[in-house]
Nucleic acid binder design. Structure first.
Lengths: 346, 346
DNA sequence: TAGGTTTACGCAATCGATTGCGTAAAGATG
DNA sequence: CATCTTTACGCAATCGATTGCGTAAACCTA
């Protein structure tokens, strides 16, 4: 129990392994091995060390460990827009899945300042974080450089479709098919003038959903005439604005497929404000199945994303990439069409 | 430019300061000082080092730095329930404010496993993270022990009212007063039977809002009779359930103050489903002012939380606590009553 | 009991950035 | 020109945990 090295005894020092070692009368090597449960430590010693650790109020220093192991057990999640419930809803599952794998998550919101994400790519390159989960199609320029340079990094993308860049593993649904299913459903209900509220024109997700709409219309012998396409965005405000534009058109559509639930919320609110009934006057469908969609008036027909699966598979892939470089092909998960009153012929 | 130390040249090593130093022909001390912009480095050398850093693709290793400085520039945000938009909406501003101060944020969702938060208190105690922001009234047991032991830790609580424990700085609104304002508004509209949809009975936030309701009723000479209190929760589902219970009561209330917007959403959806009109048959008000509340049908009267202020002040306080131990008294911020159609006498 | 094996542990290097202290070289002053 | 500053940098210790290697001591076997 004699002191080996002079350990300073300031009142409020953070306890280190050396403190535990001193209390237990062993070396730090032994403490480390005992706490990690490694082989040649007899039960009796292990107990004593555990007791000493508790007594000292010891907890490992994450940075010392990460520095030594060159692995931090931290992954970064880049989120484009937390205001869209889609992201927190996914984040719940990401958080859970990561926790179950022993990873902590750092988040960075890229809505205001997309350039911010470049800094985190540097963190990845510097070995400060183990992996990055992109929950949107936006890809930091610095990352593109690395991919172009043929570097192989632990990065997974999810929730949005793959743009035509390879080199980043993706976990996603078939967005075109999902949009197709919604429009197909509307067409089968007998709607003829099926409009589409398009998302941001350059957003890959929006492009895919539009493509699904066009495809389904074509397959049903309906036309995707320009007056049936309304340029909008992914927010409620833009959905509201779109309602005004629709009313200004010569002929109203009889159904509208919105590129996401949020714009559908805004659209429906505005249409109702103008005295139109949903679905009697105009049927509406969305995309995402946010939790509110089930209880709104009327309940909204939409596409349910397999958020939990997406999160779990993404984390699983990321873990694989971090730990052994394998498992880097894309995954397509099944979506589900949720049919509710907003799209049903009365 | 001669090599000083044998630096291994594996193809894909992560560049370190030593690499930069070698390229620039200086020592790591100089690199460190140059990159940090510290005094005695002439511009010419600084340039050369910056160039070398870029050439090497260098970025500092967060863990090495944190270990040395005993400061990580990471704060942890504990979030009870990401499914309630209140939290992501606050998180947006927390993320932003933290970023502006040079902090990164880690998040931990405590909905499923509250015991999880204890681990993060250990991280704080071990010096692995710099501070903790609690966005709910739940307080990890381990933390209570520390406070009881008189330890002074960088922790700030926000978004929920303070329970009767001192020792943790809080940034919040006057929940009782805010609830009072809502009910006061309803009473001034002429409503007489003003019911309250209470949140989880042991939740401090729910208790405060109930208290505000009772106080306002008393001040208006109205009674808070037991049949006007409906036990519910903070979710849409529970709001829906509450609607059924209300209809089973002998006499309907003419106004209902819900303990949050989400339960109001569920309640309104269910009441409308039963053919009741809002506000003609029953007025409804909520609490939180989630973004959806402005566009729903009818738009919901509610209390707007100063989320941005809360986030900024919280981070500011946390920063102060981390950096110099000062600024540890509570802050009460102003709320705002948002009056919309759901509570207006027609 | 000599020689061999196993068990239980310690020593010291290592991870990468930071920084107090020291010191040549350049410049300033008398 | 001798002495004193100032400038510009390098050396080496440090932060705390991990781990390869080494080694006493205990245990076994012939």
């Amino acid at each position: 129990m004699a002191k080996r090295k002079p350990i300073p005894t300031n009142e409020s020092r953070i306890p280190t392994m050396a403190d535990v070692a001193r209390i237990a009368g062993v070396s730090t090597s032994t403490v480390s091995r005992a706490l990690a449960g490694l082989p040649p430590i007899p039960e009796e010693t292990r107990q004593r060390i555990a007791q000493a650790a508790k007594e000292a109020g010891y907890a490992v220093n994450r940075h010392a460990r990460s520095l030594r192991l060159k692995r931090s057990k931290v992954i970064l999640v880049l989120i484009p827009n937390l205001a869209n419930p889609n992201f927190p809803d996914l984040l719940i599952h990401i958080d859970r899945a990561a926790y179950d794998c022993g990873y902590d998550i750092m988040i960075a919101h890229t809505a205001i300042d997309p350039g911010r994400s470049d800094r985190y790519v540097d963190e990845l390159l510097a070995g400060s974080i183990d992996g990055v989960l992109l929950t949107a199609s936006y890809c930091p320029p610095r990352l593109l450089e690395c991919i172009a340079a043929g570097r192989h990094l632990p990065i997974v993308r999810t929730l949005s479709p793959t743009p035509d860049l390879t080199g980043i593993t993706a976990v996603q649904i078939d967005e075109v098919k999902a949009a197709y299913d919604v429009v197909d459903h509307l067409a089968k209900q007998g709607y003829k003038r099926i409009a589409h509220l398009g998302g941001p024109p350059k957003e890959i997700m929006a492009i895919a959903r539009r493509k699904g709409w066009e495809k389904a219309l074509a397959d049903h012998g309906l036309s995707a005439s320009p007056d049936l396409y309304i340029q909008s965005g992914f927010t409620m405000i833009e959905g509201q604005r779109a309602a005004d534009e629709i009313r200004s058109r010569s002929e109203l559509p009889d159904a509208i497929f919105c590129s996401n639930d949020e714009s559908a919320y805004g659209l429906i609110a505005a249409l109702k404000g103008h005295g139109l009934r949903i679905p009697q006057d105009i049927a509406v469908a969305g995309f995402d199945d946010l939790s509110f969609s089930a209880v709104m008036d009327p309940p909204l027909t939409t596409v349910r994303l397999p958020r939990r699966d997406m999160a779990e598979r993404s984390i699983q892939k990321l873990k694989a990439l971090i730990e052994d470089d394998a498992d880097n092909d894309n995954t397509i998960l099944a979506h589900e069409l949720i049919i509710r009153a907003s799209s049903l012929r009365s």
